[in-house]
Write a protein that binds this DNA or RNA. Structure first.
Lengths: 198, 198
DNA sequence: CGATAATTTGATCAATATCAAATATCGTGG
DNA sequence: CCACGATATTTGATATTGATCAAATTATCG
């Protein structure tokens, strides 16, 4: 997904792209500030949240490594949320004005960008539908099935289950237990860094 | 959101747009068929689901009225899922080839389209973050806060809570009980078709 | 006015969250 | 290469809370 973003970035003029480091606990941008760029996390983690009129706040997104965020800044005059580095982070920043300029001239790049957005929409709809599955076993199984290679029904597990459990909206304990149950019942088999559907 | 889509549609050439009726239980398109169009539900409901190599299937999205779906068809050679009408439905169909053609010529329309996608991404990220809130009260409260008018902290409720509860990933009973609790504890007050944050 | 859908509340159950703790693994600096 | 600290994996016990099943009441729409 984000390697695609890098293909686009590679074609942008230098002046449109910059890299920034943000220390844990500092803001990359604040709600209400003029929107100047869209971003992608290279390393670290950035939380997007909105201050609400009643004094409370709501998290809108937690962008992890290789995730883009604030894409809508392209179309907004100001940021609608805060971006706070939860860890020391480095981000790529794409100047909104430059990007708009490029997109108006290079419809191929614009199309690549749209394609990225459309893929995100599709992926997030799938994740939302997953969340409608209440049973931990079924939800995990659906997640695995969506990621299984067509040929050998194998899924590469390239990050800790601890992380995956957050994506699934389950606690790590619930995920480990589901894995154990699914394996016991013969629906999956596990090797290191890999799961196989049966 | 979708009135924006209609603004785009209004500018498209006639030949790019068509309306279709699909009877409950019939497929608008099937997985593997050549991707020819993107769609929006006018009335009814369409379920998108994928057949998986192990014989199971997974729901990717249930598109209700005024929701677009299969946007990624613009960039794919064939559909990656089935589209099944769950109810008698009418849909608008936008021919992919025509749309690509128009977008390459009219960067303003292309931009409007990207803006729509970016807004969807933002909205769905927010909904995903909502789902991370486990407590029914807190989740509902966050949902209300995101929708509150800035001036008077009021939220218009223009559809039954039964429907909203699905969006929240809770049962209707859980939502009604949360509403009652939040009102009892003075965090909200309810009028017909309206909620007020306190 | 009748039928259907929405709202509301109660009782019970089942499942996941939590809290806890032990073991295994990984990565890093010495 | 090894030791050590940090992280990940695993399993157990318990608590909490939302799902379910039920049913009554109210609202809405032809």
């Amino acid at each position: 997904m984000q390697n695609k973003l890098h293909q686009i970035i590679a074609e942008l003029p230098r002046r449109a792209v910059s890299h920034k480091s943000v220390t844990r606990g500092t803001f990359l941008f604040r709600q209400q500030q003029p929107a100047k760029a869209i971003f992608a996390v290279e390393t670290g983690r950035v939380r997007l949240f909105r201050d609400l009129p009643d004094g409370s706040s709501v998290t809108l997104h937690v962008a992890g490594e290789n995730e883009a965020f604030a894409e809508a800044s392209l179309f907004a005059s100001h940021y609608h949320c805060h971006a706070l580095a939860e860890l020391d982070s480095t981000v790529i920043s794409l100047d909104a004005e430059e990007l708009l300029q490029v997109m108006s001239e290079r419809s191929d790049l614009h199309l690549a960008f749209s394609r990225l957005l459309a893929a995100q929409v599709r992926e997030m709809r799938a994740m939302l539908s997953l969340r409608d599955i209440r049973s931990a076993d079924d939800r995990l199984l659906a997640w695995l099935r969506l990621r299984a290679r067509t040929d050998d029904l194998t899924i590469e597990i390239d990050r800790p289950w601890t992380t995956i459990s957050e994506e699934l909206g389950l606690t790590k304990e619930a995920v480990y237990r589901s894995l154990a149950r699914l394996e016991r019942s013969g629906q999956i088999s596990r090797q290191t860094g890999r799961v196989q559907l049966c």
